[in-house]
Design a protein around this nucleic acid. Structure first.
Lengths: 339, 339
DNA sequence: GTGAAAGCGCTAACAA
DNA sequence: TTGTTAGCGCTTTCAC
């Protein structure tokens, strides 16, 4: 395997010259540059990143910690992040952790052992404290969420997210506009300090604004984000509350499980129960009826995350926060209530 | 950030001694071992993998090239692979490529630039040649498939797979046993030199054994593995061949898209069309009706892949090939044909 | 514009 | 059992 030494010998120049050429440093004559470049090609030179990293005292790796990777919502985002990293000359180091685990301590370990230059956290908690985040040891970016419940200084990290509360408000509002008032909400936990809690607030606010009192029997917590739990919780809901006519799910995957539960209970969507969710995963285009959902721009989310973080790492920009909008993807799961 | 040098100074020993302790080499006295170990802890020492890799002329990374990562079938496998790598002290380097691209040349590049120690290919072609594989430069493992159409020496690589042909045979046979004879098959391409072609053969054989002539109008190729293409091809099938009564899909995701097409065409599963597939993704538990499928042991597949490859890399065993069995996961998409 | 040389943190002979 | 030392491939001063 060819090294810059080989190239240097081949061209009768010093290794430092080769290094300069390979790194696009200015002070090299066009002649030597060409010579070196073609030699590199001839010798099938591939840079040794360990050596480069060691000399640099850093890697060109960005860590990606995904919390709850079972959720198909993350798949296209991960893809976009990997691709964008590659485009920018970084490499991505992926680590998936179960939904319940702590992404911050996991991230901190990774940054140390792999000398990561930056970190993207996908699907984490919204309540980081300055103290815990200080252990991270590298610039980080919250992807698909932000620090709503925490006390972080906005200039100390970046984020790409949707406005969970506003979007949830919109979802609930759409159901209300269809005449529904017995609207259940399906979520992880109303105290998860994360996505569920934020979206739950939007739901509550929409109900309040419409003069509909909050009905705790319609708040369906599942404790985790699994489809299994969502299915079982929906079954229970239908048993306990035959008066329910609509359901807002904080995630597409959970909505799909709910649809199955409804069907297994002998009811139909949207005749008996209307459903709306937030996410926009591919699979929800293929349910019957098609799931009505507020689709997040998944690929864009991943791209933006990398773009912003890389700019921070390269010193080209400081931390920033991007809010993306969802798009209503009308399906067939919402019906007008005919009393 | 502490280095072994710091530890050496702290303990008044040589760096090589520290290195020995940290790498569990035998010839160290218990005293120095303890001294070094506690110093490492006190100094919050974290090994610098770039330096280690450079000295070793290798990384402890296993590359994972996933072809067609949109397929939800791969998600649990990737998770299992990552976890198993970690358990064995390796780190995983993930690279996702589109379904049509060449995993071998991609893998070769990766091995070079990242000095990967081994490679797992997930969802690749079945027809590697000795020549192309020789460019890989590292031991590799085919996960979820094997080299059925190629000319590779069985001792030169490993694989973990199901018997595609036999499982497809079984799927088709199950439909035949229910009285079906107009059985369509939904696949990528019958000449893809990969999963579709293998499973297609099993389908053909089952029909032949049952005395049912092959009907080319029932062979639905989609050119790619996307749900979109599967949906459209199924729509066309239903238009062209109203006599079809059953469908065998080579993948769960495509089957789910087909179910949507059938429903959109005003038909019902299984009353009008029976469906069976191979894969066993989580989502197919939540279709209505539940998809009947031959479920692959996804997590086990990933674990086995790592286990075998790591044994090869560590010199503990030579290459091997594991065949896993699917499990029939009965759903509600298969019905008996009442003529 | 180019070369010589030191050093990044770690491993692995070879000596002692 | 331990220490000395020469690299691994690359980057980066500092001379020339």
């Amino acid at each position: 395997m060819a090294t810059i030494k080989d190239i240097a010998a081949y061209c009768n120049v010093a290794v430092s010259t080769v290094s300069r050429v390979l790194n696009n440093h200015p002070d090299v004559s066009a002649d030597t540059r060409d010579k070196v470049l073609s030699a590199a090609r001839n010798l099938h030179y591939v840079p040794n990143s360990s050596a480069r990293d060691l000399a640099h005292q850093q890697t060109d790796s960005i860590g990606l910690v995904v919390r709850g990777a079972e959720n198909p919502f993350f798949t296209p985002i991960i893809r976009a992040i990997e691709r964008s990293c590659e485009d920018k000359g970084y490499s991505m180091s992926l680590h998936q952790i179960p939904a319940g685990e702590d992404e911050v301590s996991e991230g901190a370990k990774l940054v140390q052992s792999k000398r990561l230059k930056g970190l993207i956290l996908l699907g984490g908690r919204y309540d980081y404290t300055r103290e815990e985040v200080s252990t991270l040891g590298a610039p980080f970016m919250c992807c698909s969420y932000t620090n709503h419940f925490g006390n972080l200084d906005r200039t100390s990290f970046s984020s790409v997210s949707i406005n969970d509360k506003a979007e949830a408000y919109r979802a609930a509002e759409l159901l209300i506009e269809c005449g529904h008032s017995k609207i259940a909400v399906l979520l992880d936990s109303i105290h998860d300090r994360s996505i569920s809690e934020r979206r739950y607030r939007g739901y509550c606010e929409a109900l309040a604004d419409a003069g509909i009192p909050l009905d705790e029997g319609l708040v369906c917590e599942t404790v985790d984000f699994s489809m299994k739990a969502a299915y079982e919780r929906t079954i229970r809901l239908l048993e306990e509350r035959p008066d329910v006519t609509a359901l807002f799910s904080v995630a597409d995957s959970m909505a799909i499980a709910a649809m199955k539960a409804i069907s297994d209970a002998g009811l139909s969507v949207p005749q008996d129960i209307s459903i709306i969710a937030i996410d926009g995963i591919e699979m929800s285009l293929y349910t019957t009826p098609t799931l009505t959902t507020l689709a997040q721009p998944q690929a864009l989310m991943g791209e933006k995350a990398v773009e912003i973080l890389v700019d921070v790492l390269d010193g080209k920009a400081s931390h920033s926060h991007v809010r993306l909008e969802t798009t209503l993807r009308p399906g067939g799961t919402m019906g007008r209530l005919h009393p």
